[in-house]
Design a protein around this nucleic acid. Structure first.
Lengths: 159, 159
DNA sequence: TATTGTTATACTCTATAACTATA
DNA sequence: TATAGTTATAGAGTATAACAATA
């Protein structure tokens, strides 16, 4: 990877390191790395990270509508259409037309969807261990709290 | 392996809240929100978040090659091509063919590129204030350190 | 009129594989 | 053979706008 001696990558000027001090920039950077790793983990069950998080939200909110998911995941309702279609085609979820509102469909996990979640949870926990390796319990708790803090500020911002 | 109770899917079942306790999931979630806000900020200079971060890396590493950026930004070299093309077309950067290696091009900011950065920096700092609003200096430092910690663990993971 | 979900469309970010021109 | 950059292509994730069916 590193070539001996004659490295010609003309970057001898001292970096200004502005970006590394910006929480927003670092969150984007780390988030992107996380997605890259999660892609690999979820490929075992044929899902991408975004699709898996929708599956998890349906697991946590059985019977919900797509509009509920749009709010929970902070995405437009149109974004969900291909994800729901994929989860349905894989038979990880089922859609039941609501009796109260015939426009909408209650979403539920199937046993196959539940199995898919159970299948990747060990890898997900292991990934969690990896990225928090060497962190104390207090540091990890503080990180989760700070992330929640930032999330709430961002939600206040654009809603 | 899996968690004990294989909870039967019931509409009244309380949410399991698993996701919120996962650092990886929260990083992806918050990162996505950050990108959404940054999109708005950078639209003022005609750039998307990824394009702006490449512009910043060139500012911090004047004369670098695209291969250097690929390493610094942790992306494939092919990913950079449309970004570099966009920055060049907007005249934010210039490409000078290297005398030492005629395959490669030294990348430099133009004065227009520098102006573009100067133009959005106030908004970027203000965004920074918003998402860390109410955080103490220690909490903010700890967050940056934890993010760096996670980033390093992720880089060790896949390299 | 307003809302749920869909379609059509478009843009950004990402990657792999094959190519060129150099080294 | 190996490397710098390009092209072609593909898949995710995101959005806006217009639409049908229903409320």
């Amino acid at each position: 990877m590193t070539k001996a001696g004659h490295q010609r990558s003309s970057i001898e000027a001292p970096p200004r390191r502005d970006l590394q001090q910006l929480v927003g920039y670092q969150l984007r950077r780390v988030g992107s790395l996380v997605v890259k790793e999660l892609s690999y983990i979820f490929s075992g069950i044929g899902l991408a990270p975004g699709q898996f998080s929708i599956l998890m939200l349906i697991a946590e909110h059985p019977g919900c509508f797509q509009m509920d998911l749009a709010r929970l995941a902070n995405v437009d309702r149109s974004t969900l259409v291909p994800m729901i279609e994929r989860l349905t085609r894989l038979k990880f979820i089922k859609r039941d037309q609501s009796d109260d509102d015939r426009r909408a469909f209650h979403l539920h996990l199937t046993s196959r969807g539940r199995k898919a979640i159970d299948q990747v949870m060990p890898d997900l926990r292991s990934f969690e261990q990896t990225i928090t390796d060497g962190m104390g319990a207090r540091e990890k708790t503080a990180l989760l709290q700070s992330l929640h803090h930032v999330e709430q500020a961002l939600l206040r911002q654009h809603n």
